[in-house]
């Protein structure tokens, strides 16, 4: 194998102490049980924070497919998050759609955005791609700020709470459970993808593009698949984010947002699902635990990111060495 330091196989992300399959199930069920009872134990404040952390789990797992699995640096991931949120906002408020009718359009819009931006640029060198995605993120935000239909700088407010089979999703606890379900779906989808034919193709392309191509893998197609699937995760997160807050504005989708999601993915460990989940929780809970940080919050994370890259490029989760 090459000296690829971020090359841990995604499916083997669990730490050495979790190699035992039975133990793994016990841990998974314990976490699940904790998530179910958490709002009953903690107050509404912590429930809000946990909801936010779960949203980040969805976003980070989505970006992880792009960065961790396919090895493409995406610096404008917030754009897909924005596309999902704004599609819901525009369709429900300006056109009076029901949330669930608008939802497929949100996903479709993200797929289209992913194909439009990824299609022509995925052939390029990876650092060009990084900067194109950065530019794309800014284009989306500027457009949201300048267009009449997206409410310009003040954004869109008054987005209705959706109901599901007669269950009106309304309170903070309701949304918390919605995000628990979304996060679980995202985790399962990530595991399934990593183990799929496509997941192995990503691994190959990430390690050696030319060799992968020589083995009959369509490089651009495989990358595009990662890009579009990542976009779908982002749009789903964005759609429920819009419903949860009821109001969205361009500043929720800034470059900082893209960077925070990316930091979470890298801090935890690119390509490793438990690591990425851990990263999402660190990024959201960290500032809450250290309230006094204030403006230093991002600086602390940025220094952390730099140190991780220099000294532990595979992230903080104790992943398997080598590969």
């Amino acid at each position: 194998m090459t000296s690829n330091s971020n090359g841990a196989v995604p499916t083997h992300g669990l730490g050495p102490f979790l190699q035992d399959a039975r133990l793994r199930w016990v841990v998974a069920i314990a976490i699940l049980a904790f998530l179910v009872v958490a709002p009953m134990i903690f107050g509404s404040y912590i429930t809000v924070i946990l909801t936010n952390a779960l949203l980040y789990v969805v976003l980070c797992l989505g970006l992880n497919i792009v960065v961790g699995y396919a090895g493409l640096l995406d610096l404008g991931y917030a754009a897909f998050f924005a596309v999902g949120a704004y599609t819901i906002g525009v369709l429900t408020i300006q056109f009076g759609f029901n949330f669930w009718v608008a939802f497929p359009f949100a996903v479709l819009a993200a797929v289209l955005a992913g194909v439009i931006i990824g299609g022509p640029t995925l052939r390029l060198r990876s650092d060009y791609l990084a900067i194109v995605t950065l530019g794309f993120g800014e284009i989306v935000r500027f457009s949201a700020r300048n267009l009449e239909i997206t409410g310009r700088a003040s954004g869109i407010s008054g987005i209705q709470d959706p109901s599901l089979f007669g269950w009106q999703i309304r309170t903070q606890t309701d949304y918390y459970y919605v995000f628990v379900v979304l996060a679980i779906i995202a985790v399962i989808a990530s595991f399934r993808l990593a183990n799929s034919r496509l997941g192995r193709a990503w691994l190959y392309v990430r390690h050696d593009e030319d060799a992968a191509e020589a083995m009959g893998i369509n490089r651009v197609q495989v990358k595009l698949a990662a890009y579009v699937i990542g976009a779908i995760f982002g749009a789903v997160g964005g759609a429920f984010f819009a419903a949860n807050l009821g109001a969205i504005s361009p500043e929720s989708f800034s470059f900082e947002q893209s960077v925070l999601v990316l930091m979470a993915v890298i801090l935890g460990g690119m390509g490793k699902i438990p690591g990425v989940i851990l990263g999402a929780f660190i990024i959201i809970l960290g500032p809450e635990l250290l309230r006094d940080l204030g403006e230093f919050r991002l600086l602390v994370f940025a220094v952390g990111l730099l140190l991780i890259m220099l000294f532990r490029p595979s992230g903080i989760w104790p992943g398997r060495r080598g590969a």
Binding site: S3, N4, S5, N6, G7, V67, G71, L73, L75, S126, D127, A130, V259, L262, I266, E295, F296, L298, L299, F301, A302, V303, L305, L306, M309, L310, P313
Partner: peptide
């Protein structure tokens, strides 16, 4: 190192300076 790592390092340096 792989290109992805050095790109992320450059991004980290940028964020450290900015913040």
């Amino acid at each position: 190192a792989p290109r992805l790592s050095i790109l992320i390092t450059a991004l980290a340096v940028s964020l450290v300076l900015q913040n």
